[in-house]
Every structure is written in C-alpha cells, then in structure tokens.
Design a protein around this nucleic acid. Structure first.
Length: 292
DNA sequence: CGGGCCACCTGGCGGC
DNA sequence: TGCCGCCAGGTGGCCC
C-alpha cells in the first residue's frame, strides 16, 4: 500500500484541490460494508452537505489520512494495500470498488473525490466527538520526522525482534512499510536481521536520518507507484525509479558495485532486500561468561 | 513477548 | 490463448 510518502502525497494533492468544496452527496458502494472496518450506517448523512473545516488542515498520521469537516467530525481514511483516492472533474467510471464517492462543488464547479480499493484491506470512518478515535490510531508510535535518537533507542532496546520488523511495527514508529523499511536500512548500512536491541545510539541517529532522507525524497517524487498508487490527480508517483534495493534482487549493489549484489530474504512472510556486503548484521553483546 | 502461521481480498504477471 | 500458482505497498488474530 501506500506508505507514509504515498499518503502524504495524496494529502497534499487533496489540500490543493478540495478544501473549499462542499460535499453535495456521498455514495457508498454495495461492498463498502466489507472493508476492513464497516462504515457506520450514518456515514452518508454525516458527510452530505458538509464543508471541509478551513481552520483544521488536512493531515496525516502514520498511514492514516485525516480530513476534518466543519461539523467537528473527521473523515479518516486508510488505504490498505490497494487503496487510491482520485479527484476528477467528471464522475468516476462505474466500478464495484469505488467504495466512497463524494460529489463536491465550489463556486459552481463540480469535482468528484473517489476512494477506490479493490482488495478492501483499507477503510474509511467518520470520527466524531462521540467516537473521536480508533484503537489503531491511538496506538500509533511516533512520526519518523519527529522521533529522537534517544527515544528510538529506548523503544528498540528491550526488543530482540529484527530491526526490519520493528520498523514495520506501527506502534513503535508510524508510517514505515515494506518498501521504505528496506530502503532506509540500506542507506543506514544496517542489516535487516539485526536484533533491535543491538542498535547503538549512533545507529539510531543514522537510521532516523536515513528514514527522513528516503521519505523526503519519496514525497518529492510523489511516492512509489508499484501497481496501485496514484497521486490524487491520477498521475503516477515516480520514486520507484530511485529504489536502491526494493525489488532489485540480483542487481548490483548501487553502493558497493559488482560483484556485490542485492539479496532477498523473507522476514515474517515479507520480502526484505539488502546488500550483505555493506549491511553487516549486528550481533547482541555476548552474555557474561559463567565463572567456573 | 515473539515467531510463525493464517485470514482478509483482487488482480497482475510469468510459466507452462 | 488460457489456466494456475504466486506474489503484492497492510493489519490483526491465533497458537505455541
């Protein structure tokens, strides 16, 4: 899915196109009930004839998109693996996967915003003062752009799980997915299987800088379009052309060059890509030797 | 707590 | 051409 850069790209696209619009109608697909979270029966009524709240900007938390409305509710969208949000000046083509279509208007100009998600691993929910959050949203870890090395060290220190798995755990750090976890570990020269507890403060500093660098570059390129991601105007993200390791098994390591090639390993059922030559696996400090 | 599974879904791709 | 198996950007649950 959309990881942090893709969601951020969509947020920025929407912020540039729809915040002054009024929602004239909201159409839910017949399949919307089988999204990962079922939308409340009142979703349609809560959205229709509402305006976006100009006092609260559109925002993103981890991989969650938050669109505040004037009636103090927030349209919260998670894109799962295959979700897209596309705006268009004509109604979207009919599809069973258009789970939410908002017909918008501003100064007599019509615009449609469509949430499309074939696999239905994503969802949308209306957060209201009565139901102000979601468990997963409450439990999100810190944002990669604000976490400090000290904080990351303290989160990693008690854990033996591979650092790659820790990066994918949204409760530890929010917004990182399978592509950017591999890319950041590559840049930080950290082996994905390194135990989380083996990272030093300096490793944490380097990892945070690598994360921030790769995420910033990806946002600048409009995210990575592997297959489903589109910017909100329908155009492609371009960061997939700048991947160093993701999906590049067998290709030369861009850093070490031949004969060193990118390897692939499966970690908790997810592909990880790395260069074993410069991403050295860290080991845990040896346990103290038993005194004879 | 953690690792290894599975489930939820559709669709694209390569191999035969 | 067509079918089949495999794989995919995420998350959460269950069992050991």
């Amino acid at each position: 899915m959309p990881e942090l850069p893709e969601v951020e790209t969509i947020k920025r696209g929407l912020a540039a196109s729809i915040p002054h619009h009024t929602i004239k109608s909201a159409l839910l697909s017949p399949l919307a009930h089988s999204l990962r979270l079922t939308p409340s029966p009142h979703s349609k009524q809560k959205l229709e004839n509402q305006q976006f709240d100009k006092k609260s900007l559109f925002s993103r938390r981890g991989k969650y998109l938050l669109l505040p409305l004037k009636n103090k509710t927030i349209l919260c969208i998670h894109l799962g693996m295959s979700g897209k949000i596309i705006t268009s000046e004509t109604p979207p083509q009919t599809s069973p996967h258009n789970h939410l279509i908002l017909a918008l208007v501003h100064q007599n100009k019509k615009l449609w915003m469509t949430y499309h998600d074939p696999r239905r691993f994503g969802f949308f929910q209306i957060l209201s003062p009565e139901h102000p959050s979601l468990p997963a949203l409450d439990n999100l870890g810190e944002e990669p752009f604000s976490i400090t090395p000290d904080r990351l060290l303290s989160l990693l220190h008690p854990r033996k799980i591979p650092i790659k798995n820790a990066l994918l755990n949204q409760k530890i750090i929010a917004g990182i997915g399978n592509i950017y976890a591999s890319e950041a570990l590559f840049s930080a020269s950290i082996h994905p299987l390194s135990p989380s507890s083996s990272l030093s403060l300096q490793d944490c500093e380097k990892l945070i800088l690598s994360l921030q660098n790769v995420l910033s570059l990806a946002i600048k390129s409009g995210g990575s379009s592997l297959r489903d991601h589109r910017k909100s105007d329908g155009s492609l993200g371009m960061f997939q052309h700048q991947w160093n390791v993701y999906n590049r098994e067998g290709k030369p390591c861009p850093l070490c060059k031949l004969p060193h090639i990118i390897h692939r390993a499966s970690l908790s059922g997810r592909s990880s890509f790395f260069c074993p030559h410069h991403q050295k696996k860290l080991s845990l400090p040896s346990p103290p030797l038993a005194r004879p």
